[in-house]
């Protein structure tokens, strides 16, 4: 028996595999046993009801997808009355993802969802859709600091800051989140992208642009997870393009203590449970007794620090 448990700050997860926000809901219980996941991460909610973006909200590109959903939300009250009780029937930590248009609104909803039954709050400061210019708090260290400080004073629950691959200041943003009191970093959200139908010459998404997810995002998110793990003391949760057990192992070696699986669930709804079995087998065959032996074991000792921290290719 290998030890698959992992610690995200004060929270111990039975295993390191959890869904990425937006790719998971109560509906998945029709296909798989939700007891088997390391945590449950809900789709981002906002305080008010939101309709979301115009359709088409999804299109595929070679081996990956773009989405522009726009955070449709039934509001926080509906969430507290319906969604939290659903998940509380499972003995699995519930992570609630929240977002808002301003730091004050963000703090308010953070306080509202800090209720019994919620194990941690994932703060989606990186969604590329929600603000008019596509900019999000996690684009810059200053806005990250401002929102995280307000969130920190609004809740005693662990706060997981979900970072954005759209920033050129990954490490600065990660440090800003840590300094402002984040308990973990989720690295990362989708990458702002575009696709155009060459026959109609129309953008393939109703919102013109959207977030890239799937296997083609993985090297980017992995690079960020590695940079963050090197830079901060708080746990890093790897997220981006995971679809195989090798992808998970790669994130763990890079320094992630847990992973989120997103788009791959759309292709194979059972993938998280499949990957969990494969991860256990991998650790057994490699004679690795504990998951923690793998975390951060990347052999980068020969590289200069300047390489680790570079923001562009040399």
């Amino acid at each position: 028996m290998v030890d698959l448990t992992t610690k995200i700050g004060s929270l111990t997860l039975a295993n390191p595999i959890m869904p990425a926000s937006g790719t998971f809901s109560e509906d998945l219980s029709e296909v798989l046993d939700l007891h088997q996941l390391g945590a449950h991460v809900t789709k981002t909610i906002t305080a008010e009801k939101r309709g979301g973006n115009p359709t088409p909200r999804v299109c595929e590109v070679r081996g990956s997808m773009l989405n522009s959903i726009g955070i449709p939300s039934k509001g926080v009250q509906h969430f507290i009355e319906n969604t939290i009780p659903f998940y509380n029937a499972y003995d699995v930590p519930l992570v609630v993802s929240i977002s808002a248009n301003s730091a004050d609104e963000f703090a308010r909803i953070c306080e509202q969802v800090s209720v019994p039954g919620v194990a941690a709050i994932e703060v989606n400061i990186s969604c590329p859709n929600i603000e008019e210019d596509g900019k999000a708090f996690a684009m810059r260290p200053s806005t990250t600091t401002a929102v995280m400080e307000k969130l920190r004073s609004a809740s005693d629950l662990p706060l997981w800051a979900k970072l954005s691959p759209n920033t050129g200041e990954t490490i600065e943003v990660a440090l800003a989140a840590e300094e402002a009191g984040a308990d973990a970093l989720v690295v990362a959200n989708t990458l702002l992208s575009m696709a155009i139908d060459i026959h109609t010459r129309k953008p393939k998404l109703g919102n013109l642009m959207g977030g890239l997810s799937g296997p083609s995002l993985k090297p980017i998110a992995l690079r960020m997870a590695y940079q963050c793990a090197k830079s901060v003391q708080i746990p890093v949760i790897g997220c981006g393009g995971i679809s195989t057990v090798e992808d998970i192992v790669e994130y763990l070696i890079a320094g992630a203590t847990a992973v989120q699986v997103g788009t791959a669930t759309f292709i194979n709804p059972n993938i998280m449970v499949t990957l969990l079995g494969q991860l256990e087998s991998y650790l057994e065959t490699q004679n690795i007794a504990s998951l923690s032996d793998l975390v951060g074991s990347v052999r980068d000792e020969d590289a200069a620090d300047s390489v680790v921290f570079m923001e562009t290719a040399p």
């Binding site: 790719t23 359709t55 088409p56 909200r57 999804v58 299109c59 959903i69 669930t265 759309f266």
Partner: peptide, 16 residues
């Protein structure tokens, strides 16, 4: 009909 991703109700892509 509508473009779909997950088909299960999770992703909210296929609204009308």
């Amino acid at each position: 009909e509508q473009q779909m991703a997950c088909g299960l109700g999770m992703c909210q892509c296929c609204v009308r």
